[in-house]
Each structure stands twice: as structure tokens, then as C-alpha cells.
Computed example of a mutant assay.
Amino acid sequence: MIAKSIEKMLSENQEHFLIPAEMVANVQENNFLDHALLVLTKVRYAKIPVLDNDYKFKGLLSLSMITETMLGLDELDVSKLHEIYVKDVMETDMPTIQDPYDIENVLHLLVDHPFLSVVSNDGSFTGIVTRRELMKSLNHIAHEFEKDYTVQAIETKEEK
């Protein structure tokens, strides 16, 4: 359980954690991999959300998923990229969160994921919460905590 004072300070910045959907690069599940490769290369992200035609979240696509399809025995074969759909190689088994989200859950999930996709009740993609944005908030807390709270060490048995 997160200490109440830390949770309070994190909650004060919670609205800044969400990067809205319109600011997040994505591809559609029916795009071909050659298009997805261009998008990933242009935005310089390792992984991006995959949406359907109704902007419902479907999964994630990474550069490594695309390059895996290009691997041949002796060389890279890019000729298949315009024949394979994003939905054929995307990752579909990943955690998502709904807004409003539980900060403690987000902290646990961001240990293993650089960002979490935020979806509405109907599955619409509303944005992402990134490890970077949360770390900025934790950095703020680390520097400002004692301005708002008095910290007193508890004596341990060894110190008594």
C-alpha cells in the first residue's frame, strides 16, 4: 500500500500522467506492415498502439515484431511487408487501464511496461500513461516532500 502522503502528492499530478489519444502515434489493425514500419521509424518509438476503424484499442505493435517478419535465412526480406497486416503480428495480451485509474496499480504495471494504454468502458482508446510522466512526478515528490511534510525517523530495535 502506498503511503497516504505520497499517494496524495501523486494524485495532485495524476491529470498530467495521461497523454491524450490525439497526441499518441498509432496504426490501424488493417494497415500493412510497410506503413507501420514507416510510422514507427518517423515517430522513433519502439512500440505504438493499434486501433480499429472505430478507434477501439486492439493491441500494440513494435519495431521488433515487424523486423521478425522480415527475417529470412540469409537476409532481411522486406517484400512481404506490403502483404501482411498489422493485426497478424501485433501483441494483444497486455494490460490496459481505465480512467480514473488506481495509481498503485499503475506503479506496479509500469515496472514492466514503458507505457499503459488507457481505454474507456467501450474499449475506445483515450491515451497512454507513460513511465516517463510518472517518474517526473516521483522526481518532484523526492525534491518537494519535506516542504509539505515533517519526516521523523522511527527508532529500530538495534538503535534502542
Rank of each mutant, 00 (worst) to 15 (best):
N105S: 13
S79M: 03
A153M: 12
T92Q: 14
N105W: 00
H143K: 13
Y85K: 15
E144Q: 15
P20H: 01
L60V: 05
S124R: 08
Q152I: 07
V129N: 11
I48W: 07
V118I: 07
L73D: 12
G123H: 11
E15L: 08
S79H: 03
F32T: 04
S124D: 00
L71A: 14
I103C: 09
Y55F: 12
K80E: 09
S5H: 10
N13Q: 10
D34G: 00
T92R: 12
P95R: 02
F17W: 08
V106D: 05
Q152M: 02
V39C: 11
K8N: 09
T92N: 14
S64R: 05
P114V: 04
T41G: 08
A46D: 09
E155S: 03
L60K: 09
K47Q: 11
D93S: 06
V129Y: 07
N26V: 01
S117V: 14
L33R: 12
L109C: 04
Y101W: 08
A153R: 13
V106H: 08
R44T: 05
L116A: 05
N31R: 01
I97R: 03
D88K: 09
I19H: 07
D148M: 12
A3F: 06
N53M: 12
Q98D: 07
I141V: 12
E29W: 03
Y149G: 07
E104Y: 03
N105L: 15
K42I: 01
F145A: 11
L134D: 08
Q28K: 13
I6P: 03
V106T: 09
L116M: 15
G127I: 06
V129G: 14
E75M: 01
T126G: 00
E12T: 08
E159Y: 01
Y45H: 15
E91F: 00
K8L: 04
I128T: 07
E83K: 14
Y55L: 13
K42N: 05
L138Q: 02
D122Y: 02
H82K: 12
D77H: 08
N139Q: 10
V151E: 11
L51Q: 07
D148T: 08
L73A: 02
G127L: 13
L61Q: 11
P114Q: 10
A3V: 03
Y85L: 13
I128W: 14
F145M: 09
F115G: 02
F57W: 05
M94C: 05
L109P: 06
V111W: 07
E75V: 01
T150H: 03
T96K: 06
S62D: 06
Y85D: 03
I103D: 09
P95F: 05
E155Q: 13
V129E: 08
K8S: 10
K160R: 13
E83P: 00
A46H: 14
M135R: 12
M135E: 14
D77N: 07
V86H: 06
S137Q: 01
I154M: 03
K58R: 13
K147A: 06
R131E: 04
I48N: 09
E158W: 01
F145K: 15
E12V: 01
E15Y: 02
Y45W: 07
D88L: 00
I66W: 05
V89F: 04
V43D: 09
V111M: 08
A142L: 08
L107P: 04
E155P: 07
L138S: 10
M135G: 04
E29I: 00
S62L: 01
F17Y: 15
H108N: 11
N139R: 09
G72H: 10
P95E: 02
V43L: 02
H35P: 00
F57Q: 03
D148K: 15
L51T: 05
A21I: 03
H35T: 04
